[in-house]
Structures are given as C-alpha cells and as structure tokens.
Computed example of a mutant assay.
Amino acid sequence: MAERIGIVGAGIVGLAIAQALARTGEFDVTVLEKESRVAMHQTGHNSGVVHAGLYYQPGSLKAELCAKGRAMTREYCQEHSLPYREAGKLVVALNAGEVPRLDEIQRRSVLNAVPDLARVSMARLREIEPHAAGVAALHSPHTAVVDYAAIAETLANQVRRAGGRVLLNQKVVAVESSAGSCRVSTSGTTHVFDRLVVCAGLHSDAIARLVGASDSPRILPFRGEYWSLAPERNDLVKGMIYPVPDPAFPFLGVHFTRGVYGETHVGPNAVPALAREGYSWGRISVRDTLESLRWPGAGALAKAHWKMGGKEIAASLFKPLYFKAAQAFIPELLPSDLRHKTTAGVRAQAWSKDGSLLDDFAVDQVGPVTLLRNAPSPAATSSMAIAEHVLANHLGIRT
C-alpha cells in the first residue's frame, strides 16, 4: 500500500509539493483546500513577478530557493506553454541618500549570482525605461512575469492525472497525530494520512495550533493594494520600476509592473489587514484583530514601524498620497492615470513574540506533520524549489 501523504492548502506551494510527490508514482497524495478553487489567496493575488534574487540575505533559504525556483518556473512554463515574459526590472535610487542602499542590493545580488545584473548609467536607464526618474539604478534583465494562478491550476491538474486528489471545500477543523499517522477532520469528512504537510498561508499558525506546535511565530496579515494604470498610458512602463527598499521594513514599496498580459499595475502598499482575509478596510474580524493586538510582540512592532505604518495607511485611504509616491518614479504620471484599485492581496507575514518580522522561509516538524510557518515573497517564485527542499530535508524523499 502506498504511503498516504496529505497536503493542507492548494496555493502554489502546496500544489508544487503535491505535484512533486505525485509524479514519483510512489505515494497516495491528497490536497485539502478550504476554498471552492485553487490559488484563491496569496497565489492569485500577487504581482506575478518571478524574482531574480536581488534582495535576499546571501546564504539564506530565500536566496538559495529563489535562484533555483526562478529557473524551475521558467522551465515549467516553457514545458506547459504557460506565459512567461522576461520584462526586466529597474531598481531606482531617487536621490543620493538612497545610493548606499542600492550599493548593498548590488552586493547581495552579486553574492546571490543574479544573472546579468548591471549598474546602469542614466543614459542607459532612459533607454530601458524612458519615463523613469532617478539618479542611479540596477537593471535585472531576467526578472520575469507570469500568471501564477494558471501555474497553480496546471499543477493541480498534474496531481489529478497522476492519481492524486485535490479536494475543494475541505476546511481543516481538527488534527490528531501520533507517531505513525494523522487524522485530519474537515468540514466535510475525516481523512487519515501517514504524513501531513501544512501549507496554509494566512492560516498556517491556526493549523499549527491544531497540531500542537508552538504558537510562535504568529501570522500578521498585511494587505497590499494595487492601482491599475489607464490602458492608454501603459507606454509609461516597459517592464518593472522598483524603489530601493528600506532594509528595516520587509516590503518593497510602491512600484510599477507591466504584467504578463500587457496590463500595468502600481503597488502594492503594505497596510495591516483587519482580518486574515482582509482584502479591504471593510472586511474586519474582531477575533483576528484582537489576536494581533494581544500578541506579546505587538508593542515592539508598533514602536519600530509606527511612522512607516502611518504613511502606508494614509496612502491607502487618500489617493493623492498614493499618487505622490508613484509619481516620484514617473514624473509624467497624472492622477487620472491611476484608473481604479484592483483586487488587493493579503500577505501572510510571520512575526515572533519579540515583535520581529521573520525574513526567511521557516519550516517546523512536529512528529509526522511538516509545517511551513513562514513563506512570503518570493515563495511563488521559489515554489518548486521549496517543494524539492521539503521533500528532501523534511520528508526524506529524493526526486
């Protein structure tokens, strides 16, 4: 009898793990997803960027798995005729004060072997992005854009064709594990597995509590809101224009991305969501909000980031402030060019009891249960490499 392995969560990471297991032909694979379709949350609500690895601490899991994942994603899209476009990214310093941070990104990029990264002259910057402002820039020509939801659907179909199951509308409500098995109760039925892998994103800490794992790290949801650029103004952006990120803040700041289908979006910002699935200010969970406020690290986090947080919230509520942040990179931008807000995404950001936000990917093991505790960006880029890592290092499976 084949070993039974369950995966909680049908986002791109959970499906990549399921596909890697199913293609061996040696396991009975079942994916449990609480929604009515795959890729409903982080996978289906992001910018679609395939990151090249510019920002990540050299030697970290993020740096290692992003590099591997980028190549694997490119190959997968080619193999399955999915859209993949190397749009290229400019990271732009707007003033001399940002240049040292740009230098640090360049240093990390070299150590991370980012392919063909170049420091460009102002003349070259204008060739790449004719409408962009800035005093210095890095160009990553192989940063790409894809449709991650389409990739997730393809992975799910591969799991099914290999004999696995992707079961929808299966919200996990209880987990009982022993040395040799896991009994997983859902809103629909009960499943018994030999091993379980949890890739629950925004609910990863909640499932961890069901398993009996440590309550730290906790998930702090951050909403990222995008504005769409008026279609007739898409020529303002050729590829991607990014700011130099603040190293003290785990988000990249408002930027411009020309998507894989030719559309251009501006953003995201990063504001605290008032619910795990708080895709708008009107979506509020008193329970989720109180859990965040009562977390031991809440005070330290607020003290460290209140100023940045205030700016992000203000820009979310007042379009002129959001526009001002965007116009700094494209002076020709007009308020009317930000046509409307598109669907927002919510990032599952893990944070510790001391208030620090976890930067690297984090995986825990509790008996037969493997828990992905922190898998923010570039998790989509890295998904297939994360699958390899989990199989080899946590499940003891070589593919």
Rank of each mutant, 00 (worst) to 15 (best):
S178T: 15
G11H: 10
C77Q: 10
F329V: 14
R373Q: 06
H131L: 13
E104D: 11
L111S: 11
A375K: 02
A113V: 15
N374I: 11
P83L: 03
A300K: 01
S185M: 11
R209K: 10
S177T: 12
A179P: 14
D246F: 08
V135W: 09
S382K: 01
A344S: 15
V173P: 02
M240S: 04
T186F: 04
S280I: 11
L54N: 01
S121I: 12
C199D: 13
R339A: 06
G262C: 00
R37A: 14
T189A: 15
Q158K: 13
A179M: 15
V38S: 00
D288R: 00
P368Q: 09
T264G: 00
T381V: 14
A273G: 03
L317V: 12
H255L: 13
H80G: 00
G278E: 11
Q42P: 05
K89I: 10
I5Y: 02
F222L: 15
R258E: 05
G163L: 08
T189C: 15
I5A: 06
A248C: 11
F251Q: 08
L117F: 07
A326Q: 00
V366K: 11
H265K: 11
W306Q: 03
V244P: 06
Y76L: 13
T399Q: 04
G25W: 02
S383F: 12
G6Y: 03
G396F: 02
V92G: 03
C182R: 07
R223N: 05
S187M: 13
D215L: 15
N393G: 01
V237I: 12
L54K: 02
S204Y: 09
C77A: 07
L196P: 07
R107W: 02
H131V: 13
A63G: 00
K319Q: 04
A118C: 07
M122S: 13
V244K: 01
T289A: 15
N234Q: 11
P376C: 11
D288V: 06
E127D: 08
V110T: 09
S81Y: 05
G134V: 15
S285F: 08
E129W: 01
S177K: 12
T399N: 07
V244Y: 11
A385P: 00
Q170D: 07
I151M: 09
K341F: 10
G345Y: 01
R294N: 07
G297R: 06
R161H: 05
W306P: 07
P243D: 02
A18P: 05
P320Y: 06
A152V: 07
T370D: 05
A328E: 09
R4V: 14
L395R: 03
L236V: 09
T154V: 04
G97N: 05
D288C: 00
R165Y: 08
F361E: 01
V145Y: 08
I7E: 01
L21H: 04
T24E: 13
A137N: 04
G259K: 03
L333T: 06
R233G: 10
Q106K: 05
G134S: 13
A93S: 01
